[in-house]
Design a protein around this nucleic acid. Structure first.
Lengths: 338, 338
DNA sequence: CTGTTAGCGCGTTCAA
DNA sequence: TTGAACGCGCTAACAG
């Protein structure tokens, strides 16, 4: 590898023409004898074909574009890990861009990546707008498939965790634990997945046919500090349980409760969504509805690979959640409320 | 952007030759008049030059390769964020690969990226071996600069946090708080930064000229669970303070202490290295020595950019740490030990 | 099954 | 200052 090894070089070493090498690399219509010589030459030089040159002709670069809002979050990190592993296994490279939580930037990222010449694009989205749809349509004509992660829209292909189901799971659980007066700490409804689906799922199961059920809603930003600051508002409702749209929010609430001398789960129960490691280290450890984001990432990668191969894939919106009972939810004794 | 816009297309629109467009894009030896026409065409089409084609000729692709052990960690995520921001600002793309914590793979990643044709490589390393050095030397001849992050070796360019200084900072602090009998919970010495420098720095300041100082060492793997499991061994030394090489380790120790009914910081103090958010949500919140990994990432990116520009840069090993006093360290009253 | 030939989109000569 | 012609490394079409 003294300098860049080209297909030309190994053609010379193996004493064949470059096209034979190319054929060996791509389809395989080569005689055993020459194939072996080529194989040796490649092994000896550590050659791997230049993706830039290949893309020019083959329209395939082996490079996948990835857009994420951020990676410095447990969710984003796990997701990217799953994606990276899956693509790594099939020899695909990943070109990474971040939207830094800005929606307009997300669009720019996709355009960028497409113009760059990636084979396909994976977008961990903040929300799918009309602009997204138009862009994806254009890219489809240019044979660049796009798969969205984490948000849904019937006009595009997507894969997302079952936020609604997760909400239902928690609604059922909290109800069975005897809670009736609860506060749901959520985020902006612009986020259909985290802000709407989780809440709706919870309310549907929790409130259905239960006259005594009471759900008050408190909106915060994402993040530990934000829910912490809203604790006064939350406590004013005198809930027996606080349901938080993310684990980060839940941890903030727990901290506030702790500082106000409110016992968890003795007096107030707290639950979150996410299953972050964060929640495992608190006192008490946080009960949560967990998504396996790494698995979600892997599956997304595999879906895109299928799309690349021209197969038709169906969107996935039921990627399952799992209840992890740790120690932050208690059973309400009959008549103990108020 | 109906289909891929090429330099040819905008040449036609602007009624100039492709080479004029190319010149406009790269140097700028174009008449004002034509420059304006070209400028308009580019804006109208959303054109951006095809990196694959460009790399073929120009040997510059505007793509930087990044190798990281993992991203599903607070450290990795912050680092990548800083890197991504800095490169984004100058219009560089980032090709990402993970070594998945395997050292041999780290080498493969670098080779891969180089053969792919990236302009330069940033490696968040697990440790710099002779193989690394040889490879970097080869790549230097091919004009592909490599910058290591997090590990040091005099034969390569690197940037790393001042682990030794961080250890000293903590050694001084713990000593001033009156502790004498402590346990240092560390990781393998193969990791020169985390496993060696932090410990050595701590011991140097903590023990110097203090006959009563006693530091026992317990080795664990990285990770919350690992230190948790070693708690018995740690407590057997009856320390008044436990120093942990990472915050994750510290949180595991705190949990074990808590479950054993040992008050923190009342009976035993606990500190970590890292400054992760993780430590901010525990009870008590964890006192720690923090590194600003996002800033570190930005600085690394800028260093590589300079190397790309042909400037000579010096390795950095004093990226500073900062003590964050939260609530897990108490003052030892005179004579209260044992 | 194989080698020859012709571009992919771009940057860089070279004359003009 | 400009445009024409060439080639980067590779794959695909062709003829053998």
């Amino acid at each position: 590898m003294e300098r860049k090894v080209t297909i030309q070089d190994i053609a010379a070493i193996a004493e064949v023409s470059k096209s034979t090498v190319s054929r060996y690399l791509n389809h395989g219509y080569v005689s055993e004898e020459k194939a072996e010589r080529i194989q040796k030459a490649i092994a000896a030089t550590g050659f791997s074909s230049n993706a830039f040159a290949r893309r020019l002709k083959a329209k395939k670069s082996g490079v996948i574009g990835i857009v994420m809002p951020r990676v410095d979050s447990p969710t984003g990190g796990k997701l990217l890990t799953g994606i990276a592993k899956a693509f790594d296994e099939v020899g695909c490279r990943t070109l990474f861009e971040s939207s830094f939580l800005e929606m307009p930037r997300e669009i720019k990222n996709i355009e960028h990546l497409a113009q760059f010449g990636v084979d396909g694009i994976l977008v961990s989205s903040l929300g799918i707008t009309d602009e997204h749809i138009a862009l994806v349509k254009e890219l489809k004509e240019r044979d660049i498939p796009v798969l969205f992660i984490g948000q849904q829209h019937e006009k595009v292909r997507y894969i997302k965790a079952d936020d609604f189901g997760a909400g239902r799971l928690l609604g059922d659980y909290i109800r069975r634990m005897g809670h009736e007066r609860v506060v749901f700490v959520g985020v902006t409804e612009k986020d259909k997945a985290v802000g709407v689906a989780r809440k709706d799922g919870f309310i549907e199961v929790f409130s259905r046919g239960n006259r005594n059920a009471s759900v008050n809603f408190v909106e915060t930003d994402f993040g530990f500090d934000d829910s912490y600051k809203k604790s006064e508002e939350i406590l004013a409702y005198q809930p027996s349980a606080v349901i938080c749209a993310t684990d980060g929010l839940a941890v903030g609430v727990m901290r506030a409760l702790h500082e106000n001398g409110v016992a968890v789960p003795g007096e107030v129960s707290v639950v979150g969504f996410g299953g972050y490691e964060l929640g495992a280290v608190t006192y008490p450890p946080l009960t949560t509805v967990a998504f396996d984001y790494e698995a979600l990432g892997r599956r997304a990668a595999k879906m895109l690979l299928k799309m690349l191969a021209g197969e038709v894939v169906e969107s996935v919106s039921d990627f399952p959640a799992q209840l992890i009972e740790r120690g932050s939810v208690g059973k309400v004794l009959w008549g103990s409320e108020g």
